[in-house]
């Protein structure tokens, strides 16, 4: 079995796709609004929103820890009674 010491593709330029150009007809079919995939800035905004959305995991962690602590306190109180 071969060993992996370095990622394939490391140091290579990022992959790019040709820009999407919409004709007037295609734009009209999209209701006159540029779809997200045709707008690199909108794509970047979408990614940034998803990245920030991951911060909700901190809230999940806080809630989960709070529930465990609450359970521990209840158990301690019940056993002490």
């Amino acid at each position: 079995m071969s060993a992996v010491h370095q990622l394939a593709g490391a140091g290579q330029p990022y992959r790019v796709s040709p820009p999407v150009v919409l004709s007037a007809d295609e734009l009209a079919r999209c209701g006159g609004r540029l779809p997200v995939w045709a707008d690199p800035m909108a794509l970047a905004d979408e990614t940034e929103a998803d990245r920030l959305r991951e911060r909700r995991l901190y809230i999940g962690l806080a809630v989960a820890l709070a529930v465990v602590v609450l359970l521990f306190l209840v158990r301690t109180a019940v056993l002490a009674a």
């Binding site: 990022y14 992959r15 790019v16 796709s17 999407v20 995939w37 690199p40 794509l43 970047a44 990614t47 940034e48 998803d50 990245r51 991951e54 911060r55 909700r56 995991l57 901190y58 999940g60 962690l61």
Partner: peptide, 19 residues
């Protein structure tokens, strides 16, 4: 480890790639 995904993820290394 799961909450670490808030900071240790791949989003900063993405790009507008539509192959």
């Amino acid at each position: 480890v799961i909450p670490l995904h808030a900071v240790r993820n791949h989003y900063r290394e993405t790009g507008p790639y539509l192959p």
